[in-house]
Every structure is written in structure tokens, then in C-alpha cells.
Design a protein around this nucleic acid. Structure first.
Lengths: 110, 110
DNA sequence: ATTATATATCGCAAATATACGATAAAAAGA
DNA sequence: TCTTTTTATCGTATATTTGCGATATATAAT
């Protein structure tokens, strides 16, 4: 794989793919659900609930943060994470855009 | 990585993650768009449009087919692909389910 | 029958993702 | 100050994904 071919596609498709990748692991979906359900959103609580090591959870949190779906603030030795809803809505719109795009022409031929 | 930890999460999250993975590459999003826009959906036409080799496109088509988002029928030496809209709607519902789940409780704390 | 065309699959190389133990860093508590 | 607690990061092992050339297969065309 000499070159990263992803950059040769439309930016809008790249962004949507990036977001899809962020939620393309059940651990990250579970993390998002925990963050939404709990009032507090301390990293340690997520580690307790998930069947993964602390280092792995930290890595998943980083990925979600990199794509902008969550934000975190350091709170003494603890880290507080929560969902960035505005970013989330943006991606939901992108998804629905794709869905609508695909459903508008129903040329089922096979 | 001794064990595949993905199986330790809820099935509903696993399924959503699987779908997200299918559209987590701009080439596969582009393929879906081409299939939706064109009346015909012959593999060769997709290869022409995408900046990828035929073997690579064939592989992406296989992944989309495996997850059920598209279906294909052999038509002489050519292969005809199209979107499986019922599957697509099912996944759209799964996505919106997650979005609603996350948006209902807006406990933004950081 | 032979050739051309279209697509799937094989085999390989390189890149990326996943997972975790060990350790670093940073603040709270004793 | 020393210890404990909490989290991030480093290093490493393994798995998966991505990409393509070569080849196999199957049909159409000549």
C-alpha cells in the first residue's frame, strides 16, 4: 500500500468515513452510551463497566476525542469526559444526508 | 491481542459497529453513491469512476455485500450490483436509535 | 476453437487498529 | 515529604484492513 488512497475521495465522504470509523467499534459505542446515561463522566467509571484494560479504554477515549465526539477536562487526578452534542448532531445530519441520497432513487435492478 | 474483545459487548452495539465499519471508508461511500445515482450498476463502471484498481474495488464490493448493504447478480461476464434498501433502512434506524439515546439526556458537564 | 472482455480470488506487502503491561505524570491525602 | 490514586502514554505483540499484480474463471464475440 504505497499511498493512502483515502485522500483521493471527496472531502465530505472522507469526513463521514472518519466518523463512521469512530463508532465502528462496540467499545466506543458502549463508552458513548455510558457518558450519556451517567451524570458524572469520570474515566474510571467507564473502565469499571467495560471489559477492557484501563490503557485500552484510554485509547478509545482518545479516538473519540480526536474526532470531536467527546470532550474531556482534567479534574485533579481524575478526567471528566462528556459528549459533544453539537458535533454529534453535525454527524447525524451527514448520515441522514447519505441515507436520503441513497433512498431518493430506488433503481433496484438486481 | 489474545482474544477478540468485540464479542464481549452487547449484540446491538456489535451490529451497529459492523455497519459503521462498512461505511468507514470513503471508497465504499463513493460506491454506494454511484450505485444510487446510476440506473445501471455494473462493476466496471464503478472501477472507471474510482481511483482504485479493479481488484481493490471488487474487494470493497464484497465487504458491502457481506454486511448486506448491497446485493449482486451475475449477468453474463458482467456483475450487476445494487443497494439493498431494506437493509439500509434497518441500519438507519439503528443509527437514529443511538443518536436519540445520546441526545435524550443532555448532562453536559465539561 | 480462439480470442477478448469482465470480474473474483489468491498471495503478498504495507499500513492501521486493537489490546495490554509497564511506566510516567500529576494531584490529593497522610 | 511520601504514598496513594487516577489517567495518559510508551512500547510491543497480534490482528485486521487496504491495496494491487497476477491469475483463474466464465461468458461473449469472432
Amino acid at each position: 500500500m504505497a499511498l493512502n488512497k483515502k485522500e483521493m475521495f471527496e472531502k465530505i465522504d472522507q469526513e463521514l468515513a472518519e466518523f463512521a470509523k469512530a463508532i465502528a467499534h462496540p467499545a466506543r459505542i458502549a463508552i458513548l452510551k455510558v457518558l450519556a446515561e451517567k451524570n458524572s463522566c469520570i474515566c474510571g467509571e467507564i473502565v469499571e463497566v467495560l471489559p477492557l484494560a484501563q490503557a485500552t479504554v484510554s485509547q478509545h477515549l482518545k479516538e473519540l476525542k480526536n474526532v470531536g465526539l467527546i470532550q474531556g477536562s482534567i479534574n485533579g487526578p481524575k478526567s471528566c469526559y462528556c459528549i459533544n452534542y453539537s458535533k454529534f448532531i453535525k454527524f447525524q445530519e451527514a448520515f441522514n444526508g447519505l441515507f436520503i441520497h441513497l433512498k431518493n432513487q430506488n433503481n433496484n435492478c438486481c
